[in-house]
Design a protein around this nucleic acid. Structure first.
Lengths: 111, 111
DNA sequence: TTTATATATTGCAATATTACGATTAATAAC
DNA sequence: GTTATTAATCGTAATATTGCAATATATAAA
């Protein structure tokens, strides 16, 4: 139904899925990579960098912000965005946990 | 438009986004965790485990298979699924790359 | 061959996402 | 005050996703 049966899954499963979904768009990957490349924080430069309308970029930034993947601070009329290291670290830990378990269990490989 | 401007982004950005999207659903996280938990490969047990209809599980498995996150081998009438360690490792590397860069650059933190 | 079992596919209905133009809000410069 | 500048929000169209019942397919067992 385009609607997800959130109740049927654990909070952790829903949280991880939400975090992954927030990253699961090439424009948002591009924004993340752009923020990573720049030493200093960026605001409307993203609009110049990517071939998307300002409204669209703003929407993508909102989703990244909702997922806590980025932080934004107001600087005059501009807004300074940067990546939230803690959330990326947490995601990294989760993916690593799965991957490590997989590598260990691979000795008893099946398929 | 619900359609993504794929041409506007690099192949790597699109690939990573596609991989993340394949994981970005609690049911698919649950399937991954279930396959991880079991020593031996699982087939229709997933249908018994999760509160979703058989058709829905089959669809989720298809998406995971398309993304190469799982492999399936036919065993009589059943199909034996297991996680694809290589793809998880590759994803882990990408996330780790971003996270490590972030940790290094955090000294010049901004926001 | 018939029957049972296991999984995939089809065809919806409900909802979500993506993208953008137009507008709004909020601050800075004058 | 007026005028730029910057970013968020609204409204809308096009498309994608989720979920399931019903059906199809394919093999095994009888």
């Amino acid at each position: 139904m385009g609607i997800t049966k959130t109740d049927s899954f654990t909070e952790q499963q829903n949280e991880l899925a939400t975090l992954l979904k927030a990253m699961a768009h090439p424009a948002r990957i591009a924004i993340i990579e752009f923020l990573l490349k720049k030493d200093k924080c960026i605001c409307g430069d993203i609009v110049d960098e990517l071939p998307l309308a300002q409204a669209t970029i703003s929407q993508h930034l909102k989703e990244l912000k909702n997922a806590n993947l980025i932080k934004g601070t107001i600087e005059g009329t501009a807004i300074c965005y940067c990546l939230n290291q803690e959330v990326f670290s947490a995601l990294n830990d989760k993916i690593q946990l799965i991957t490590n378990q997989l590598i260990i269990k691979n000795s008893t490989k099946c398929c």
